[in-house]
Design a protein around this nucleic acid. Structure first.
Lengths: 341, 341
DNA sequence: TTGTAAGCGTTATCAG
DNA sequence: CTGATAACGCTTACAA
């Protein structure tokens, strides 16, 4: 049984082929400026011919750095990995792109329960730092990451606590944008479907942005709260039902997330309410499915590219011992079919 | 400038604390059965107290294996990472879960153009093997992975060539299921919106499954082809338009992917065609957005958990020098609103 | 059952 | 500008 290992080409082999020392090979390939161009050329050629690729593990062992970022996607306990809110998948894509642009590899894992929170990425030198993305509902997970050993570097999206190293959408501005849009469309009784107390702190920020803009425009803010613990869609559906049943007059809904908005939309449709004719609806997050609903959902969409960049930058800053700013991702209003033009 | 490195706890420190040799620590923690339980307990305790975590890089360097799988998500060139077909994101989630269940880490990257295909994961010992997921349209990417150096281990979803180490949905069975369902609902003129020539080979398999079932039930199969190079949604929209404009009578559409079906649905709605009343529609893939369309899309959904498992198993088998089977992921019919009950 | 010692393939220090 | 020569922290024969 032949050992594959014997086939491995090392920097020593390249050195021999190029007629230089092994350390010269390392420096030449690493771009060290002290190496003369002719030498570097010879080394490169030899490396190419032998199809040499440096062993990352050896390099990392020696350097003490990994060039890798770990991304942990927090799921609801028991939730199927494929059913994670698509918003987080989009964020994952942008984050990977941002990391790659800075020369980092990305180690991804989906975690939902205590037994696998312990990636020990930094402790075991699998990654230089950690980015946490995912549901705010899994408080056990957040507690775990909050209690990471001192010296751990991390950054996260959203975050149930303001003390975490978070990056977030510009929720206040986004909510104001949505509210002004609805009012500008001629809707008068705009209610916010959301929460002031959810672990998802961004929801409160969105409510606050909505409330401030309402008052500014001379209207009284109204909150139709969502129930805890349910899937977002179901929360939206029930909140819309409760709102309609309450008899309180309303002609527009600003939902603090798209999935909630989508659920509300379904309930409205079920009751024969016409959107955007009778009631206007705006969501928040810019999930893809919003483009497919009937009518397509108007929403506040964060700049995903900036979001990924900010997460990675913030983490890299933390690894360097700094605290980075800014932390807010700009948002834009996407007008689709669920509001009058 | 203090060197962080000096703070690192090594197996040597643990050895000292436990009063044993360094190699005993390694063996004790690795679960080597030759170590006596009292010794192991002492070592574990010391390790715990010192908060020791083995350096993975050193371990991997020594072992020559990484315990890591690389997953490459192929995007359309220039496509924003966040806009990747959600089907692939779901698949990514399941794949990560399957890998984790087998003790593997997962290195994820999104790639669209030649300059970054070259992850050199295996050559640089960053991973033991490669899983490729993503659009079949990016032929440059597939060519690259097809030409991986000998000894490279990989597996992929879909695949533009039958010679690749693919895992796929049970497309023939799924298409037959969809077709029988439509016929069973009372629709008579069922046309397939898809392609026999797309690089996405699964499309042809789905058409074949449809055609076979149609003939079996005494109907003539009809293919309404999609145009190359457009977004799937637009392909669906245009195909539906072309079909309607052709004057050819039809009362049901089997679309070879959900995104195509969703596009077709939109076009049908735009023309005032009632779904599922006038026309029934079934898609393929089980994407989440299908639950939000109006009406919600009936579809053929693969078992994502099995899909992730099969991909990982197939790769692991390849790493062990075997060729694994099976490669087909079972599918089920999900009846939602776009077909009469 | 445990200790000794030889690497794994780099990078970085220090001469020259 | 380049070459020796230490580490880096672990796993695994080989001894005892």
């Amino acid at each position: 049984m032949a050992e594959k290992r014997s086939f491995r080409v090392t920097s020593f082999d390249v050195a021999e082929a190029a007629g230089v020392s092994q350390s010269t090979v390392s420096r030449a390939l690493a771009g060290d400026t002290s190496i003369s161009e002719p030498t570097r050329a010879r080394v490169r050629e030899a490396a190419e011919k032998l199809n040499y690729q440096a062993d990352e593990n050896a390099a990392r062992l020696r350097r003490g750095k990994t060039g890798t970022l770990a991304v942990v996607m927090i799921c609801r306990p028991g939730e199927d990995r494929k059913d994670l809110n698509p918003f987080y998948f989009s964020l994952l894509g942008s984050t990977c792109a941002a990391a790659a642009a800075r020369g980092y590899e990305v180690l991804v894992s989906f975690q939902d329960s205590a037994e696998n929170f312990m990636g020990h990425y930094q402790e075991r030198r699998k990654a230089d730092g950690l980015i946490v993305i995912g549901t705010s509902e899994n408080t056990a997970a957040w507690d775990y990451f909050d209690a990471l050993p001192p010296g751990s570097h991390w950054a996260c999206w959203g975050a149930p606590s303001d003390a975490f190293p978070w990056v977030r959408s510009d929720n206040v501005a986004g909510a104001a944008l949505a509210t002004r849009h609805l009012l500008g469309c001629g809707y008068r009784a705009v209610v916010c479907v959301g929460s002031e107390t959810s672990p998802q702190r961004q929801f409160k920020e969105r409510y606050d942005g909505y409330a401030a803009k309402m008052r500014e425009m001379g209207h009284e803010p109204v909150l139709q709260p969502i129930e805890r613990g349910l899937p977002r869609e179901e929360q939206g559906r029930r909140a819309a039902a409760a709102l309609a049943d309450s008899g309180r007059p309303f002609d527009a809904i600003f939902a603090v997330s798209d999935e909630i908005a989508l659920g509300a939309l379904k309930e409205l449709e079920r009751r024969g309410t016409r959107v955007p004719g009778d009631v206007g609806v705006v969501g928040f997050d810019g999930v893809r499915a919003g483009g497919w609903s009937s009518p397509p959902l108007s929403t506040i969409e964060p700049d995903f590219e900036v979001a990924g960049n900010l997460l990675v930058e913030r983490l890299i800053a933390a690894m360097g011992g700094e605290v980075a700013d800014p932390r807010r991702v700009p948002v834009r209003l996407v007008v689709r079919g669920s509001t009058r033009g």
